[in-house]
Design a protein around this nucleic acid. Structure first.
Lengths: 299, 299
DNA sequence: CTCTCCGGTTCATTTTTTGCATCGGTTTTG
DNA sequence: CAAAACCGATGCAAAAAATGAACCGGAGAG
């Protein structure tokens, strides 16, 4: 879209931090870019960049403008996909920011199900933690977020919340495997593997042990749930995970036991979008399917 | 804003119904305008006008585009006023679509109060019925709507609802003036003046009498509440009005008596904005003041 | 101090947009 | 039924706008 060219240049300048660098990135001369910026500021009625000795930086007005630019770009994309949709094409792209836990089982199933009905729709799925997911939404780099326990919630409009008790993962021969529900204190007595502090499971466990005398003491702390799952096999330790990240139906090498909700409250899995935004058709439809699937998941 | 020029042309073509007429309106040649439209359609990826023998008309894709264009224009205006605001200027314009009843007393008071604190803010207040108010919001021609019993509510995001019982207006010497609350059947026995069927008061009265055997039989039907108020003086008839349209405190030439809510349910006065829209600072602040004033009005 | 990198400016050049004349088509008018 | 009136589209030259190359003055960096 030609009329957004200046906006693209402004974004490039913001990213590069200087007009000359941005000009190189965009394959034009610095003088041309400089004039575009100046002309835009003039007709906009305010400066949008602070001129520093080593380059430029957005001022508060510029920050507001960038939001407008992102919203505009995203809305144009939505519009175009909607127009393509009404001419019967059923195409589009859905981008999702979601917790790592959903990557192995839940999301592939859902995307495959959707694509079997709408083969023209493409997807991008990115692993994001609770904070990054919300930032993704507000910069319009993702349409949908599906994360545990997001924190700020200012730009995050909750579409559906699903309560998820924590499950304990272990080998079938582990002592704790004999009971269907395990207590937190028993877990702490065994070697345990935990995710890093930014993850939802860890936040809940830390909060639960904070009041009590016992603290978690992970023998290994990791970022990858996959790693933890495999590590549990080797050392006969235990790990923790939300049920939606597990393949509870299938009998695997590991067993999962519910961690008593008396000890640790269930986590909240939240499906959300940018507040107030109108999603493209494909994304809106996919959100509906996700919401349905999550509700079914909760029985 | 230069980058919206093509959008302005598209709007002109939509209004004029033909490229040639629009070209004349916009003071360019038809060929230039025609090429702009064609070029835009090409990069947009779809035609937006149907070519008819006598001109052009928006197709469905064009209708969607027009919504986008209006949203863009309005958001840019909001952004500019917000930027002006943060440089300390406190300027802006608020446009309100509201029921006739609010024009004499309520709205002037509120606007004056607001302007005493923010003299840089200007207002436009337009009388709109329940349907037109919502249309105004969705075309971005008004920021705020304040109407009785709006009907569709698809684009109308309710900010505050205020229940308003109907009051009966009459001369102090009217027989019905002796009781503090009057019944509908008694009103129907006296000559009455009613607003036209599209007004909220009338809708409620029609609905209330629809089930009963008695029907309203207005001796005069009018569009102007002011006219009706004065007519009541001359013929010693009665009329109906929502209390917010009255100056209940002041002793005037007329008295107002509550119409029993057993006979006619109270009307709903709804304060609203375009669904999902971010209002300009000035409008957002004024909405807050209105909401406060309306709540106080309800005690 | 010198060197480098920055945004801003000048001016010739290139690219884009516009106006004019005109074509082919359809509807309205006489 | 034919002429007139509009309509959108297009070729081509003129006008307008954007661009690139060179350069200026100023602010850190070494």
């Amino acid at each position: 879209m030609r009329h957004l060219q200046t906006f693209r240049y402004i974004e490039a300048v913001m990213r590069a931090g200087s007009i000359r660098k941005a000009a190189e990135d965009m394959n034009i001369t610095a003088s041309a870019l400089n004039r575009r910026i100046n002309r835009f500021e003039e007709e906009f009625g305010a400066e949008i960049f602070e001129r520093l000795p080593r380059g430029v930086r957005l001022n508060p007005a510029g920050e507001l403008l960038i939001q407008h630019i992102r919203a505009q770009k995203s809305d144009l994309l939505r519009l175009q996909s909607q127009v393509a949709d009404l001419s019967g094409e059923r195409r589009g792209h859905v981008s999702i920011a979601c917790s790592q836990a959903l990557m192995p089982y839940f999301l592939p199933t859902q995307i495959a199900a959707y694509r079997s009905e709408h083969p023209g729709v493409t997807f991008s799925a990115n692993v994001r933690d609770r904070v990054a997911a919300e930032r993704d939404l507000s910069t319009f780099s993702s349409d949908i977020a599906l994360v545990f326990e997001p924190s700020h919630l200012v730009d995050f409009e909750v579409i559906l919340a699903l309560s998820q008790p924590i499950y304990v993962l272990m080998r079938p021969d582990h002592p704790l495997a004999k009971d269907p529900v395990v207590r937190l204190r028993d877990c702490l007595d065994h070697p345990h593997v935990l995710p890093s502090p930014q993850y939802g499971v860890r936040v809940l466990l830390d909060a639960a042990t904070h009041k009590s005398s016992r603290a978690v003491s992970p023998i290994v702390e990791a970022e990858s749930f996959d790693f933890m799952r495999h590590y549990v096999m080797h050392e006969n330790a235990i790990s923790f995970q939300f049920p939606i990240g597990l393949n509870l139906g299938a009998a695997g090498d590991l067993v999962a036991r519910e961690l008593s909700t008396r000890d640790v409250p269930p986590g909240n899995l939240l499906l959300g979008q940018m507040r107030g935004r109108t999603l493209p058709v494909a994304s809106a439809r996919f959100v509906q399917q996700l919401a349905q699937a999550l509700q079914d998941h909760a029985f």
